[in-house]
């Protein structure tokens, strides 16, 4: 009887499951995006290693060339620390691509120091330790996950104390460093597929809007970044046309200049 009851319950569950499956409505083949526009969230900022992963699949990238050991200057202005923090986390992803364990460990320590400088060190300590442990074991999958957790924890800690703007600067710092390396790789060995990875116009608009909403920071560097984004926009917003080698070179010059400004005191 107990067995029968079990079988009976299982059958009911199975039938219920199958009927739910059968009821699954087919998705419309087309939707009017404009109609949904009022319900569209801001664009999601990808992690630097999303673009590095795609770039890596095109082959021939010597990631060691792009590993940066320069720790950058020590800043006291919180927006500058936030930008640098994002750039250093992106450097962590580059060091992982290069499988450079000593640099990954240095970056873990640097991220912790910067997070402390901005008042969110407490949430980062366990991640910094996990990055070091995983790098020692050369467990690159784990290092990648910890870098992601680190960025997420920093940004959550900032959001909790209503420092959303600093959190956005962390994303911007990471995006700029990622774009600098992406353009350096594609500039060295141009391919249409590599250049296409720069097609990110909505992200540019997103960062432009965020920067415009930060007048209180009143930093020359933020004004420079804003002006640079306006310069980059027509170079990557090419519609169906490919992004030219000249455009890639130009974007690399711009992002390298900004990268230097983020890491060094002017």
């Amino acid at each position: 009887m107990i067995l029968f009851a079990k079988i009976s319950k299982l059958s009911v569950a199975l039938v219920a499951g199958l009927s739910l499956w059968a009821q699954a409505a087919e998705a419309p083949k087309h939707v009017d995006i404009k109609q949904l526009s009022k319900k569209v969230d801001d664009v999601v900022v990808p992690l630097p290693n999303e673009v590095f992963g795609a770039l890596n699949k095109l082959g021939g990238v010597n990631w060691r060339e792009y590993v940066r050991n320069d720790k950058g200057s020590n800043f006291t202005e919180r927006p500058r620390i936030a930008l640098l923090l994002g750039a250093v986390i992106a450097d962590g992803f580059i060091a992982v691509q290069a499988e450079d364990a000593p640099t990954v460990k240095e970056i873990g320590a640097r991220v912790l120091a910067l997070a402390k400088g901005i008042g969110v060190g407490g949430s980062i300590t366990p991640h910094a330790k996990a990055i070091t442990d995983a790098a020692d074991k050369r467990n690159w999958v784990a290092v990648r996950s910890e870098l992601d957790r680190t960025q997420n924890s920093v940004q959550q800690a900032m959001n909790e104390v209503h420092d959303e703007k600093l959190s956005q600067l962390v994303s911007l710092g990471g995006w700029l460093r990622g774009t600098e390396v992406l353009t350096a790789v594609v500039n060295k060995r141009y391919s249409e597929e590599g250049a296409e990875l720069l097609h990110q116009p909505d992200l540019l608009v997103y960062f432009e809007n965020k920067l415009q909403s930060m007048p209180e920071y009143n930093l020359r560097l933020l004004l420079d970044i804003h002006a640079a984004l306006l310069e980059v926009k027509p170079l990557i917003d090419t519609g169906d046309a490919q992004i030219s080698p000249a455009a890639v070179k130009k974007i690399n010059e711009i992002t390298t200049r900004l990268g230097d400004a983020i890491t060094k005191k002017s």
Binding site: I33, L36, D41, V44, P46, L58, R149, L203
Partner: peptide, 26 residues
Amino acid sequence: QVREDYWGGDLGVAEKKAVRQQLFKG
């Protein structure tokens, strides 16, 4: 690799929400 970040909220029945996402070929 599953991102740590997530997007969420609440919706009524038959209500839709769109999340804009940058995706990379490859």
